[in-house]
Design a protein around this nucleic acid. Sequence first.
RNA 1: GACCCCAUAGUUCAGUGGUCCAGAACUUCGGAUUUUCAGUCCGACAACAUCGGUUCGAAUCCGAUUGGGGUUACCA
Length: 504
Amino acid sequence: MLLWIITMTVRTRVAPSPTGDPHVGTAYIALFNLCFARQQGGSFILRVEDTDQKRSSKDSEQQIFDSLRWLGLEWDEGPDIGGEYGPYRQSERTQIYQRHVQELVRAGHAFHCFATAQELDEMRREQMSRGETPKYDGRGLALAADEVERRIAAGEPHVIRMKVPEEGVCHFEDMLRGPIEIPWSQVDMQVLLKADGMPTYHLANVVDDHLMEISHVIRGEEWINSAPKHQLLYKYFDWEMPQLCHMPLLRNPDKSKLSKRKNPTSINFYRAMGYMPEALINYLGRMGWSMPDEEEKFELDEMIAHFDIGNVHLGGPVFDTEKLDWLNGRWIRENLDEHAFGERVVEWAFNQDKLRQIIPLVQGRVEKFSDLAPMTAYLLSGMPDIDECSFEQGKLDQDISRKVLQYASWRLEDVSEWNTDVLYQALNELAKAMELKLKDMLLPLFIAITGKTSAPPLFDSMVVLGPYLVRARIRNGLEKVGTPSKKQLKKLEKEYRTLDLTVS
RNA sequence: GACCCCAUAGUUCAGUGGUCCAGAACUUCGGAUUUUCAGUCCGACAACAUCGGUUCGAAUCCGAUUGGGGUUACCA
């Protein structure tokens, strides 16, 4: 018995999908997984869930590595450092999933489905019109075995779905919430293997967690309703299910799930704004948790030492930067001596890379070195000091300014690369589609981004500032001209979609 | 809509049946210190969502209601 306890090592994981910016929510979940594992003397694993071929990118993956490391969250095993349970990238494990899903098919726990997306849409529409809850109707199950074989042999595209009980209730245990019950009637016959041969989250997750010997799955609350599917898969495979623990979701100030449309969610934003990683981690650690003595300021090691997952508070915490600002101030004042302060500032603002970008922008424009500071202040600041009056200059009225800022913010979400050419192309196209002269359209953007009416070229400035700061400043500008009401927003979105824009 | 989760000040937490007319931090507002600002110190405002039950006793346990959130995809 004793031996069994000793060999039962705790293994936790964070499993981000490399689609888009590295999210503070990822860091949040990583932090709690890491604290739990370290506190228990276990291991913390990073696994990349890149099964969505359309949206995953290597660049995004690298950014996740970089930003988590920047925060000081180090993993014991992962795609970049290896480990005994690799590979740690799901796209490199497709054979494993195929094998396992075939096993389920053979055992009669999963089945082939040839329905197209359109067919399923139609099915759901019909169900809804009848006032039913949209749900897969089991049409794939009705197919005869020889027909299935024939259609597979004919190369018809298909997916593999899991069978789900029609009646009864699924019971499972959450470490923080206790027993949870979900009727099986609420659970859909989930796709396990997509038509492209890649697994869905549910399959990959269960297979990997088992094979990687994950002992505790600490993840966001959004997964609670998927737990029955996972439990069922463990049962089908005859595997022991890890302990489940669902953390509360980080929220926007309006209490909805933290989203980049309403808030800066990229770790890179906080880095670009000049927060210390220690402070961000400290702040994240205070979301739903506190030190036993209620001390506000603590470092990662202290958090690990005192961590108790049972003390996680389940109310969804609002990620509100006021306290983060205060904490960051304390970290800067109390934890950096003058030398360290200098080093951090140089790293943040005056590193070679950044200087190389800034110098060509200003050298031709200064008459004296003393012109430099006022000229570049906006490149080394957070949000510019503007109000609604700032947008009254120029030919555009406030309604147009609002529209330009809103459209630009949407347009810039789709930009693949962040350089002057791409930015020019994206915004020039937008101006044409809006039937505005580029120069006129750029003015509100210029004001929102630089806070001034004259500054070094906008696209170059945007490159120096980086996407995170630029997006935040556009949102800031939008707030200052007056964010569109929900109704207006809908109308704008509809109009925006009719514009003839390419994805760059 | 259905299902699931959650509920202490504006925000983040403490509180796990009596020591709670609820404790701290941020924010805001006063005051002190400082040439100014920042900081620091002192102080003030401010909450157990509602209703019912269990109990000698409930912020704490149970139920209902209300409110918020999530899920409802060949996205994770």
